[in-house]
């Protein structure tokens, strides 16, 4: 079990914007990479850097408090838009272990859970409180096993995590292993369902 690994506390930064889309998290021009690593410096690239490439002093990721902050607190509907998993890789590589919002877009949530970036969904009230009362050194405690988030004032709030994702993260297994174990069932399914398509015999259009 790696319950310990998933019991941590950290300072956090806030990004009080709603509907942060994955094009903002990692702009498309950085998607030409064929690796997972190395996207961290480009996380939020176009908000983070000015036109001349210098860090934008107004953007939270460039602030003093961002140093060592492992949690990002962001507005509602985080991660909408493109399915690019690069968004999750970029956030992890930028040092985040958890994102807190009142709602996550479906594909982003799935991508995050599969990559060990914990999406923590809280109520709109808790989110507003985290945004409003944020002090630079305030710390949040995360306990995945207990599904508990402890706020700086000591209040503990429970957060939902799909049981299977939680199991995978705590036991250091993954979705691929589960699917590979399901092979006998997949074989049986294929035997029972006729092939509807065969792209190998693709004929040129007349």
């Amino acid at each position: 079990m790696s319950a310990e690994k998933w019991r941590f506390d950290s300072t956090y930064i806030t990004l009080p914007r709603e509907n942060v889309d994955t094009d903002q998290i990692i702009p498309a021009r950085f998607l030409t990479t064929t690796n997972r690593a190395g996207l961290g410096p480009h996380a939020f690239n176009d908000w983070r850097y000015l036109a001349d490439g210098a860090p934008n002093p107004q953007f939270v990721l460039n602030s003093e408090e961002a140093r060592g902050a492992g949690i990002l607190v962001a507005g509602n509907n985080f991660g909408c838009g493109s399915s690019r998993e690069h968004a999750v890789w970029a956030l992890s590589s930028a040092g985040f272990r958890a994102i807190i919002s009142s709602e996550f877009a479906d594909i982003f949530r799935g991508n995050a859970l599969g990559n060990g970036l914990l999406p923590i969904e809280v109520s709109a009230d808790v989110l507003a409180q985290l945004m409003r009362t944020h002090a630079p050194n305030a710390r949040l405690q995360v306990d995945l096993e207990e599904q508990m988030l402890t706020l700086p004032d000591g209040t503990a709030v429970r957060f939902p995590v799909p049981a299977f994702s939680r199991y995978c993260m705590l036991n250091e297994t993954d979705e691929m292993s589960f699917l590979l174990d399901a092979r006998p069932d997949i074989d049986a399914y294929e035997r029972a369902h006729r092939a509807t398509i065969d792209t190998l015999t693709l004929r040129a259009p007349a």
């Binding site: 998993e85 594909i107 991508n111 979705e175 691929m176």
Partner: peptide, 20 residues
């Protein structure tokens, strides 16, 4: 529906996805 790259790998390997 759209999927992330980890799921692309899963579909390539197993022809299946995990979905709620």
């Amino acid at each position: 529906f759209g999927i992330g790259t980890s799921q692309v790998a899963q579909v390539l390997a197993s022809q299946c996805v995990l979905q709620t």
